[in-house]
C-alpha cells in the first residue's frame, strides 16, 4: 500500500467534509448545524477535530466520532485525532439558523429562547408553533421526549404530537 499525502488539504476543506456528517438521531441536521464541532486543526498531515456532547449521556457520540472518521477516511485522511471536550458546555445557541429551519421542516420544533428561570415550576414553557399546522395553540406533554435533547408536545388544533428540541 502506498501512503499518499493529501497536499491540497485545508481546514476549510475539512469543515466542508464535516458538513456532510449528519446527526444519527436527527439525520436532517449536520453535526455543524448542531454546533457540536468546536474546532478543526491541521498540523502537517495530522487532523484534529474537537467535538462536544449535546447531553452528558448522549449515546450518539461514539457513532458521530465513527462517522467523522469514515467521512475523512474516504478523503484519504488517516491521521485523525478526535478530541472530546466538555467545557464550554454545549448550548442550543450554537445551532445554526439553517439548522433550525431544517428541524421545523422535519417536524421538530426548533429551540426557543427560554422565558423565566429554568427552575420555574408549571406553566413557564415557551409558546411553540406546531411544525405540522403552524398553530401556536400547543401544550407541553412532557419535558422529556424521545431523546435527551427533546421535549414532547402536542398541538391542540391538529392534535398531532410533536417533538421540541429543547433550549439548553
Amino acid at each position: 500500500m502506498t501512503v499518499t499525502t493529501n497536499l491540497s488539504l485545508t481546514e476549510d476543506r475539512i469543515w466542508q467534509l464535516l458538513e456532510e456528517v449528519s446527526d444519527p438521531e436527527v439525520p436532517v441536521l449536520s453535526i455543524l448545524d448542531l454546533g457540536i464541532v468546536r474546532g478543526v486543526r491541521l498540523e502537517g498531515d495530522e487532523v484534529h477535530v474537537t467535538i462536544t456532547p449535546t447531553y452528558s449521556g448522549c449515546p450518539a457520540m461514539n457513532t458521530i466520532a465513527t462517522d467523522i472518521r469514515l467521512r475523512l477516511l474516504a478523503e484519504g485522511i488517516t491521521r485523525l485525532h478526535i478530541h472530546n471536550q466538555l467545557s464550554p458546555a454545549w448550548t442550543t445557541a450554537w445551532m445554526s439558523e439553517a439548522g433550525k429551519q431544517k428541524l421545523e421542516a422535519y417536524g421538530i420544533a426548533p429551540p426557543q429562547d427560554a422565558t423565566g428561570h429554568v427552575l420555574n415550576l408549571f406553566g413557564q414553557e415557551p409558546v411553540l408553533r406546531c411544525p405540522h399546522c403552524q398553530s401556536t395553540n400547543t401544550r407541553l406533554v412532557s419535558q422529556f421526549g424521545s431523546t435527551a435533547c427533546k421535549a414532547h408536545y402536542q398541538c391542540n388544533d391538529c392534535l398531532e404530537p410533536f417533538d421540541y428540541f429543547k433550549c439548553h
Binding site: 452528558s56 466538555l86 467545557s87 429554568v118 427552575l119 415550576l121 408549571f122 419535558q143 422529556f144
Partner: peptide
C-alpha cells in the same frame, strides 16, 4: 468544573421534574 458545567444544565431539568411531581 467542566463536568459540573455540563451536568448542571441537565440537573436543572431533573429538579424541576421531581419538584412538580412532589407538588
Amino acid at each position: 468544573a467542566a463536568i459540573a458545567e455540563k451536568s448542571v444544565k441537565e440537573a436543572a431539568y431533573h429538579v424541576k421534574w421531581s419538584a412538580e411531581w412532589i407538588i
